[in-house]
Structure formats: structure tokens, C-alpha cells
């Protein structure tokens, strides 16, 4: 989270001059279900990647490397849309502390 600015520190007229800084705001805490990916089943078709509303499925050289749980809200679209027979992603109850 950003430190709260004073009026003198704020750029004029509601301007935000750090593009994409919403990444400092983590939305992972919204989640009840957590996506679990079976790397062996996954064909890296990237359907989950293109449908994810959060952009939290990380891809490198066409291969999924991780699901960024800092932002995943647990909607389950990735698991629902996974075209692999028997699903390469499943949603499971997340064990939370407290």
C-alpha cells in the first residue's frame, strides 16, 4: 500500500503519474477458493491466461510458470474454462490463517 500523501505532495488535478501502480494493491485476500494447477496435465494452451480477469496467470515462453496469488480473487474461470479432459486446474478450499 502507498503511504498517504499530503495535499502538497499530490500532483495537480488528480493526476496519477505511476502507470499500473494498482499492482501495489493486492487483491489476493478476496479469495476463498484457490486454483491448483497440475503441471503434468496442463497443455499450456493458455486459455486460462486469456480469460483470467486479473491477469494473474504468469506465462514465460508460452509456458505457464505460476498463478500469482497476490492478485488471484479465486473466481474459478481458469478451472471452468480449462479445456483439458479432467482439468489441469481445480479450485480447492484455501486454508487461511486465523
Amino acid at each position: 500500500m502507498k503511504k498517504q500523501m499530503t495535499r502538497k505532495e499530490m500532483p495537480l488535478g488528480t493526476v496519477i503519474d505511476s502507470p499500473g501502480c494498482s499492482r501495489e494493491y493486492k487483491t489476493g485476500g478476496w479469495r476463498n477458493l484457490i486454483p491448483v494447477r497440475n503441471a503434468e496435465k496442463c497443455t499450456n494452451c493458455l486459455i486460462c491466461w486469456i480469460y483470467c480477469p486479473e491477469g494473474c496467470i504468469k506465462v514465460k515462453d508460452g509456458k505457464i510458470t505460476e498463478i500469482d496469488l497476490d492478485y488471484c480473487k479465486g473466481c474459478g474461470i481458469c478451472a471452468e474454462e480449462c479445456p483439458v479432459k479432467g482439468k489441469a486446474i481445480t479450485m480447492v478450499e484455501e486454508k487461511k490463517e486465523n
Binding site: 499492482r23 501495489e24 487483491t27 497476490d70
Partner: peptide
């Protein structure tokens, strides 16, 4: 160019 950390509902 549309970053994570936005506050649209899960599954929007």
C-alpha cells in the same frame, strides 16, 4: 497494459 490489482469483482 491493464494491470492486476484492479478492484473489479472476482470473475468480472
Amino acid at each position: 497494459l491493464f494491470s492486476s490489482g484492479h478492484r473489479l469483482c472476482a470473475g468480472c
